[in-house]
């Protein structure tokens, strides 16, 4: 498929896990970001087909990053990565424009289903 993805998460472990799942599904990981601000900057630069976004990141959180990205590109496709118990934040992210969400711990099948829905 060769679709591109930008992975935003402050934990290397989570980034590499998401990367593995998506690579197996044929995605090309074109960039990674550890903070919200970095996510916005890298999105601007890379224009990936898909962004996976952690909610809690240092510097600028995932939700603010979604708002900025959506403001710059209303067609951006952002998938939120959330922990259980962050329901209110997930709802906020969705209202901010995120397309869908997955919940940690990730099940690869659920991640891929969500990705499919986002890219529709």
């Amino acid at each position: 498929m060769g679709r591109t993805v930008l992975i935003c998460d402050d934990a290397i472990f989570m980034r590499s896990m998401i990367a593995d799942i998506l690579k197996q599904a044929g995605f090309e990981v074109v960039g990674e970001a550890e903070t919200g601000a970095e996510a916005v900057a890298r999105y601007r630069e890379l224009k990936p087909d898909l962004v996976t976004m952690d909610i809690v990141m240092p510097d600028m959180g995932g939700i603010d990053a979604v708002r900025q990205i959506m403001a710059e590109d209303p067609n951006a496709k952002v998938l939120m990565c959330s922990a259980m118990g962050q329901q209110a934040l997930v709802i906020e992210a969705i209202q901010a424009g995120a397309r869908d969400f997955v919940v940690k711990p990730f099940q690869p099948s659920r991640v891929l289903e969500a990705v499919q829905r986002v890219l529709g």
């Binding site: 959330s82 259980m84 962050q86 329901q87 997930v90 709802i91 397309r99 869908d100 969400f101």
Partner: peptide, 12 residues
Amino acid sequence: PLKSARAHVVCR
């Protein structure tokens, strides 16, 4: 998981 968040996605 997170049924209420899911309901928001569905509604949208």
